[in-house]
């Protein structure tokens, strides 16, 4: 405790961190009327971070190649120490994140928190919901199991219902006519880089907006 204190002192002398900590953590006043339902947004962020870190670990052994993807996931589950746990956390975390995001949105909708001045909170939130489901969808193909294969097949069929461009949209998503190694590579890139990058960008916007307007107080 003494050392912590000393380090904090030294940092405070140089960077004035005490007022920052006080303003944002120790002396931050939260409206009394905020209930436990207000925590779902923060929890979604927490699960997102868990997904980022467990995903980074899985990346060390995963091979985005149709001939080796399934083997590499099996290797993670059976040969890497604690690999089964990290893999499970990542798979379950995806579902948990969607549930939490839904609960968060349900509260915002129920208490009509989306009204002025928070319209764009809602818009960015909906974009985040879409990105989150896309993360789940692309991640589902990666273990290259029968379930993932058919899941991706059915999922990529959906945009086929769009008039005129539907067909080419499906082909674009699949990188061809069928689910193949090209699809796997595309989904992989989406899953580990493109979508997480977009999610991070929208999250930053989402949080900055909340800092400006403050959390809504229920009446």
């Amino acid at each position: 405790m003494q050392t912590v204190e000393r380090i904090t002192d030294a940092l405070d002398e140089r960077y004035k961190i005490r007022p920052l900590i006080e303003k944002n953590v120790t002396k931050k006043l939260v409206p009394r009327t905020l209930g436990w339902a207000a925590c779902f947004g923060g929890l979604s962020l927490l699960v997102f971070l868990i997904q980022v870190f467990s995903g980074a670990l899985l990346l060390m052994y995963y091979k985005p190649d149709p001939a080796r993807a399934w083997d590499s996931v099996t290797f993670i589950k059976s040969n890497v120490p604690m690999g089964w746990l990290i893999q499970r956390v990542h798979a379950v975390g995806a579902n948990v994140m969607i549930v939490l995001v839904m609960m968060h949105m349900a509260r915002v909708a129920y208490f009509k928190i989306y009204r002025k001045p928070r319209e764009l909170h809602w818009v960015s939130g909906v974009i985040l919901l879409i990105l989150t489901t896309q993360m789940a969808f692309t991640g589902y193909l990666l273990p290259w199991t029968q379930l993932s294969f058919w899941g991706a097949k059915v999922g990529t069929e959906i945009p086929g219902a769009v008039p005129v461009v539907g067909e080419s949209l499906v082909e674009w998503l699949r990188r061809g006519n069928v689910i193949s190694g090209e699809t796997l590579g595309f989904f992989y890139a989406m899953h580990v880089w493109i979508l997480p990058g977009m999610i991070s960008a929208f999250m930053v916007m989402h949080f900055m907006m909340i800092r400006r307007t403050g959390i809504s107080r229920p009446l």
């Binding site: 890497v80 120490p81 690999g83």
Partner: peptide, 14 residues
Amino acid sequence: AYPVVAFLGRPASV
């Protein structure tokens, strides 16, 4: 920390 550090260890060889 325990599972994460363990994960970074050497995998059982095949």
